[in-house]
Simulated assay, not measured.
Amino acid sequence: MRNPKATLFLRHQRPPKKPKPKRKSDYVPGFNYIFQDGDLCKVGLSERPKTRRYFLSQEYEANLQIRAIVFTMNMRLTEKMMHRIFERSHYLRTKGLDGYTEWFQVNPWRVLRMQVTLFLLCWLVNFVYLVITVLVLMLFCSLLFR
């Protein structure tokens, strides 16, 4: 059996870059994701979710499964809403590990609910951004072409 890490390095020809630490400016376009490890799911944000999965898999020594990756215009806002919605099933992993506070206990139905909720939230956030953009453009055009 081939080593999956070796395959990854062969594909990229070098190890992927370590993900950036979270910062206040994450209220920008990017991806929200759901990764699953057994009966736990992690809801998070990243500009490069597959690279994030790779590093989290190494840190937690687990083979995290991708359950959802969705583009959104405001990844921090979407992540906060997801954490708020599912706060009853919140679970703390080993303290000190990267992202240890963003895990939730799940069963198959909750995973499905999380996926649907993430898709709907991202759709809603993207729609609101589109409406705001159109309204600003309309206002700008009405002022410019009076």
Rank of each mutant, 00 (worst) to 15 (best):
N3C: 15
N3H: 15
K5H: 13
K5F: 14
A6V: 11
T7L: 12
L8W: 07
R11H: 10
P15E: 14
K17L: 06
K18E: 14
P19Q: 09
K20G: 08
P21K: 15
P21A: 14
P21W: 12
K22C: 06
K22A: 09
K22D: 12
K24A: 09
K24T: 08
D26F: 15
P29H: 03
P29N: 08
G30D: 02
G30C: 04
G30S: 04
F31S: 02
F35A: 12
Q36F: 07
D37T: 01
D37P: 00
D39T: 05
C41F: 00
L45S: 11
L45W: 01
L45N: 01
S46D: 10
R48I: 06
R48A: 14
K50S: 10
K50F: 15
R52F: 05
R53A: 09
R53F: 01
Y54T: 06
L56D: 01
S57D: 13
S57F: 12
E61R: 13
E61V: 02
A62V: 15
L64A: 07
I66P: 01
R67K: 15
V70T: 09
T72H: 02
T72A: 08
T72C: 02
T72I: 04
M73T: 09
N74M: 04
L77F: 10
T78A: 12
T78Y: 03
E79V: 00
M82A: 12
M82N: 11
H83P: 07
I85Y: 00
R88M: 07
H90N: 03
K95N: 07
K95E: 11
D98G: 04
D98L: 03
D98I: 03
G99D: 03
T101S: 02
E102C: 13
F104A: 05
Q105M: 02
Q105N: 04
V106T: 00
N107Y: 04
W109R: 06
V111Y: 04
L112V: 11
R113V: 02
R113I: 00
R113L: 06
R113S: 07
R113K: 14
M114H: 03
V116L: 12
F119Q: 13
F119W: 09
W123Q: 07
L124D: 00
V125N: 09
V125R: 05
V125M: 13
N126E: 04
N126W: 03
F127I: 05
F127S: 11
F127H: 08
V131E: 14
I132H: 13
I132K: 15
I132D: 15
T133K: 08
T133Q: 03
T133F: 09
L135C: 15
L137G: 07
L137H: 05
M138H: 08
L139S: 14
L139C: 15
F140E: 08
C141Q: 12
L143V: 09
L144N: 11
R146V: 10
R146M: 04
R146P: 04
